[in-house]
Amino acid sequence: MLRLEGIHAGYGATTILHNVSLDVRAGEVVTIVGANGAGKTTTLRTIAGLIRPTAGRMTFEGQDITRLPAHEVVDLGITLIPEGRQLFADMTVHENLLMGAYRGEARAKQKDTLDNVLSLFPRVRERLNQSAGSLSGGEQQMVAIARGMMARPKLLMFDEPSLGLAPIVVQQVFDVIDAIVKTGATVLIVEQNVFHTLRAADRGYVLENGEIVLSDSADALLTNDHVRQAYLGI
């Protein structure tokens, strides 16, 4: 479904990703594991079209997306739920969700999608008319996920969904992600809680200093000595 071949990318003159290749097949949950600064967020931002690769090729459902701007990547069905939530703080929760369904097909089905999405997030439904900036961190993360789903994506990418949240809220966020995974969604997730994420995932890639050093099934990674030592602290 999604394929990256030899991607180099970075910010300005600084190259962060070196020759990154990975693929995500339809219906899979894939995770990228790595330390802070390894290039996980850069990888997701590059796929989303926020960063243009300097070399390599990306395709989605066979179509070349290497040079597509972010708003056209969304059209094809790739949605990134960004690190730090990035809600429109002065707009209401409802308006935030409507922005999630801004483009073409999603906009036509806005009402149906909203009902579906809100059934997954009862807490968000209660907060519809509040400004997004007034919500707690956990509630904001729920809105960010709901907003991402409003686009009816074929591939949903999560960037550190549990970052900065209280442990009890982290569990709620994982429950929601698990529920989304159970619907058969295709997911690419970057998450600091490696243990939990590998258990939910089908496959994983290990990214170190901008290079993929390991890729295997999630079960195999959970028992891999290097992964256990470096990322699971066992």
Partner: peptide, 13 residues
Amino acid sequence: QNRAAAQLMGINV
């Protein structure tokens, strides 16, 4: 309010 997030919504900034 948030240029990058708007791009992620599919808005042509």
